[in-house]
Nucleic acid binder design. Structure first.
Length: 649
RNA sequence: GCCAGUGUAGCUCAGGGGUAGAGCAGCGGUUUUGUAAACCGCCGGUCGUCGGUUCAAAUCCGGCCACUGGCUCCA
């Protein structure tokens, strides 16, 4: 009666008392039977727990169902164990590594010994998983001592788990057991396997143990699971939709770029449509930069190796650069970055503090030897163009310059309707990864942090993500279907000014070191275009579309009117083409729709007689007849204002 | 680079030991058309590449190349 009570606070703020050591399930039951039935785990404070674990303290509690991130995490974590159980049944000699839940599902790393696992095996494993799930095996939690845990895995000869246990601190080590499978695991898990109704093993990969290239490569099996078959089907449809946006597919269909084995892997060729797209993006940024006080420069594609030895890039990135070539008695290299060239331009003449900040911009093409397995369409290539710029400024100007650069970057992504998350990438304790004095680093990191706060930015700090010469501000954008991409970066650099002996004469008539800001909002034009294609699913805003308008004549009799309209549009810099083929209008419309041309103008007898055009909008259909002049005004306004398509964010 | 896959006409794909097939595209005709595919005909491939097995290889086996999904890496 007088047993101790604990107070739990629910997500809606309600507080309720429960007897100490009540379980999550009991708490859920006290709210509703339905909730108890759907509950997968609970989150107490920031710890996720099993439903049957006793709750021994006050705290914020939430009951995790499938509809919550923590619930799905629990569900997929348990699914990983189910995968392992199935594999243990089918391949008794398999040794298990780690099997965590991930953003979309789960994976398990497994040592299959000499056996190679192919796609054919996956179906067998899937079926076994479903069979085992139906056994309704409970996930049983068991606390063990470190010695017990080690003894268990030494006995069954699993060196991976032994390796893991050795690194655990001595607090609480737990095993989870379901059916015939026992696993070292922190938990939590769903009550039993019967909730897992649908399973799909999606990918097969080699994965190095603990991510170390020198360790053994295990077989990683990726999968996803759901509490209902229908959810799996919906998920597969979603995956299919995402594949329809794939820039490799659309890039080919829309004539954006091509790859050619004779040219070489990772070296994209920009086709005419892609070139229009890219040049339009470049002009957009170039004009914005001119407005913001940048000066454009052009530098060559190769340089003497000495340049990169001076910058310090050469030893750091030797393996990911094309081999140097011998020229006369010197060694030259394809340029892997633009910065050193710009530093030399800065040094071309003596700078006064009155000259600063100097902002040098270049759409600079660089070449990096990416590993063959890493190449991917346009998003990972060996030759690409950065929208690079370097800002040389005084310490006093630094914060304002960072602000201006952040402002530019935010402006750019807003133009494409892409929400941005900001990450401050700082160094960690691994001194070997970084160059320059620790003192400079700390200063730069502090300044970045101050700027972010002064601008009221929402950000998170991630240690260990800095570049070798300085901390970064990374912009992580989300595309139209919610995927995240790391794009623009802003980097503060105190190292290169030293290495290149960059100076300016201050008001005190003494020489001082400038600070450098490296920045690239798009990052790489190739990668950005690949992301844009997928973001817009190829349905570009009018200002970006390679062909903005197609004029379709009802019959050849109206071709001359079509041409006349086209000429007038061209006079206003609209990219227009005429389809005057001897085809039926339905066929012309179909072709224009398939090419994702934003505006189609249908012209026939009516339009010729009253100087009008019948306007059709891509994906929307017929939007009515307008006078030619009205249409001209509409489209030019849409281009000038860089309007986004209505269906995008 | 490593693991698992894929490679047949410009594109999408079928065929699966007895020397290739469709649709679309292209080209030539006919048609002159009102909001997502008119009709007829023609052209088009040493089946990624090199080698092996075989009387015979697009098909089976192996090396290489390219591509895809991961791992590692990413100035």
């Amino acid at each position: 009666m007088s047993s101790e009570q604990i107070t739990l606070t629910f997500p809606d703020g309600a507080k309720k008392e429960f007897p100490k050591n009540s379980t999550g399930l009991e708490v859920a039951e006290s709210i509703s039977k339905g909730l108890a039935r759907n509950a997968l785990s609970i989150t107490l404070g920031n710890v996720i727990m099993d439903l049957d674990q006793p709750i021994d303290r006050d705290g914020k509690i939430s009951i995790n169902t499938w509809d919550t991130e923590d619930g799905q995490y629990t569900f997929w974590h348990s699914s990983a164990h189910l995968l392992a159980e199935a594999i243990q049944e089918l391949y008794p000699d398999a040794k298990f590594g780690i099997g965590p839940p991930i953003e979309n599902g789960f994976y398990y790393d497994i040592d299959f010994g000499d056996q190679s696992i192919g796609k054919d095996h996956l179906e067998k494993i899937e079926n076994k998983m479903i069979e085992l799930a139906r056994n309704k095996s409970e996930f049983k939690r068991r606390v063990v001592t470190k010695e017990e845990a080690l003894a268990h895995y030494r006995k069954i000869g699993n060196e991976y788990k032994v390796d893991l246990i050795k690194d655990l601190d001595d607090s609480v080590i737990t095993f989870y057991e379901q059916g015939s499978f026992t696993d070292l695991c922190r938990g939590p898990h769903i009550p039993d396997t019967s909730g897992i109704k649908a399973v799909k093993l999606t990918k097969l990969a080699g994965a190095y143990w603990r991510g170390d290239v020198n360790s053994k490569q295990l077989t990683r099996i990726y999968g996803i699971s759901f509490p209902k078959q229908k959810m799996l089907e919906e998920y597969l449809v979603q995956v299919e939709e995402a594949q329809k946006r794939d820039h490799k597919k659309l890039g080919k269909e829309l004539g954006i770029y091509m790859m050619d084995a004779m040219v070489g892997p990772g070296l994209p060729l920009w086709l005419p449509n892609g070139t229009v797209l890219r040049r339009t993006l470049e002009s957009f940024l170039r004009e914005e930069q001119v407005r913001r006080g940048y000066q454009e420069v052009i530098t060559p594609h190769i340089a003497n190796l000495e340049l990169y030895k001076t910058s310090g890039h050469y030893p750091y990135y030797k393996d990911s650069q094309f081999n140097p070539m011998e020229v006369d008695d010197d060694e030259y290299m394809l340029k892997p970055m633009n910065c050193p060239h710009h530093h030399r331009i800065y040094s071309n003449n003596l700078k006064s503090y009155r000259d600063l900040p100097v902002r040098l911009a270049e759409f600079g093409t660089v070449y990096r030897y990416e590993q063959s397995g890493e190449l991917n369409g346009m998003s990972r290539v060996r030759g690409f163009t950065q929208d690079d710029a370097h800002i040389y400024c005084t310490h006093d100007q630094l914060k304002d310059e960072i602000k201006a650069v952040i402002d530019l970057t935010q402006f750019v992504f807003k133009t494409f309707g892409m929400p941005v998350d900001i990450r401050l990438s700082f160094r960690d304790d691994n001194n070997e990864k970084y160059g320059g004095d620790l003192e400079y680093w700390e200063r730069a990191q502090q300044e970045i942090n101050e700027v972010a706060d002064e601008m009221n930015l929402e950000y998170k700090i991630v240690e260990g993500e800095a570049s070798f010469y300085g901390p970064k501000i990374d912009f992580i954008i989300r595309d139209a279907i919610g995927r995240k991409w790391q794009l623009g970066t802003v980097q503060v650099d105190y190292v290169m000014p030293e290495r290149f002996d960059l100076t300016y004469v201050g008001s005190d008539n003494e020489k001082h070191r400038p600070v450098i800001i490296h920045r690239a909002p798009f990052g790489s034009m190739e990668r950005f275009v690949s992301i844009l294609i997928e973001h817009f699913a190829g349905d570009f805003p009018v200002w970006l579309a390679p062909t903005q308008c197609k004029i379709l004549s009802i019959s050849e009799d109206y071709n001359s009117y079509a041409e006349k309209c086209a000429d007038k549009l061209r006079d206003h810099n609209i990219r227009v083409s005429v389809d005057g083929r001897s085809e039926q209008i339905g066929a012309k419309i179909r072709d224009a729709e398939k090419s994702k041309t934003p505006y189609m103008l249908i012209v026939g007898e009516k339009e010729v007689s009253d100087e009008s055009v019948s306007v059709r909008r891509h994906k929307k259909g017929d939007i009515g007849t307008f006078s030619f002049t009205d249409f001209l005004n509409t489209i030019t306004e849409e281009v000038d204002q860089l309007k986004l398509p209505e269906n995008s964010e």
